Computed example of a mutant assay.
Amino acid sequence: MTAIWTAIVGHPLFVLGLTLLAYQLALELYQRSRWLLAQPVLVATLLLVGALWACGIGYPRYRQESSLLWLLLGPATVALAVPLQQNLPRIRQLFWPVTIALLVGGTITVALTLGLAALFGADREMLMSLAPKSVTSPIAIALAEQMGGIPALTAVFVMITGVLGAVLGPLLLDRAGVTSPAARGLSLGLSAHAIGTAQALQEHPEAGGFAALAMSLAGAFSALALPLLLG
């Protein structure tokens, strides 16, 4: 029995299957409970970390054997253009308010992040790892590497930012009395990138479209501006 279990755990597809299973269980839990703290990415991460620890699988092996998921991350992000296209007339109607909100919000987000990190004594390498934390993973990792940050650390910051934004964002927007799907989607996409966009899509199709727009434009703006300003 031990030999069989060792063979299963050692199989190259075991890690990939474990990841998919963890997410499917987390998604099922969220759909049944609709509890914001049961956000699928957060719960799946906790389940996966516990399973990897129990199986004695380290991060280097996990990263290597789950590379297919990383490869699909880019196309999955691009696919978020579908809700954007479906809400294009509404986006055109609100073009200037959206543009101003994205520029101001994106600038303040980066400035506050770097300012607080510097205040607590973070070195340049840490600052460059933190700067793209509100951008979707493929862009953030490339930016961190280009600016002298630590890509692996940036990936963690991006995930934490997305999960916290998706969990706390709707609560804060409710407390602030924000009911417009466009405004809610814009906020979630700007602050919590792809995970926030997924949350916005569950709230309302229009929120999903504006979240995809915010995530896309914030990523493009960061890719152009951050290396020039901080490189």
Rank of each mutant, 00 (worst) to 15 (best):
P83W: 04
M159I: 10
F210C: 03
L188W: 02
A176Q: 09
L80D: 01
L68W: 10
E206G: 06
E145W: 06
A207L: 04
L48I: 11
L29K: 00
K133E: 11
K133N: 12
A79S: 14
I57H: 05
L72D: 09
P75G: 09
A225N: 02
I195R: 00
A198M: 07
F157Y: 12
G231H: 08
A176P: 04
A220F: 13
G208M: 03
Q202L: 14
M1E: 10
A176G: 04
I160D: 07
T107F: 15
V167F: 07
A194T: 03
A7Y: 11
G208P: 02
A111S: 08
R184W: 00
D123G: 13
F210V: 06
L42E: 07
P227R: 12
L47R: 00
Q202R: 15
Y59I: 10
L226E: 06
V78R: 03
L103D: 04
P89I: 05
G165V: 00
L186Y: 01
G10Y: 14
V158T: 11
A81L: 15
A152M: 15
E206F: 03
A200M: 03
L18K: 01
V104A: 10
T2L: 08
I150F: 11
A76R: 03
A200E: 00
L88D: 03
L13I: 12
G219H: 00
Q31C: 05
G10V: 14
T19V: 11
F157N: 05
I160F: 14
L20T: 00
Y59T: 13
F221N: 04
A81I: 15
H11V: 10
S180D: 14
L228N: 08
P60W: 15
Q24C: 05
L21C: 05
I141T: 07
Q64I: 07
A7P: 09
W96N: 10
L27K: 14
S222H: 03
A3S: 14
L112G: 04
F157M: 08
G165T: 08
F221Y: 13
V15G: 13
T45V: 11
G208L: 03
A183V: 13
L88W: 10
S66W: 06
V15A: 15
G209L: 01
A76G: 09
I150L: 13
V82M: 11
G17V: 01
L102T: 09
P89Q: 00
S66A: 15
L217T: 12
W70K: 12
G196W: 01
L188C: 01
G219T: 05
E206S: 11
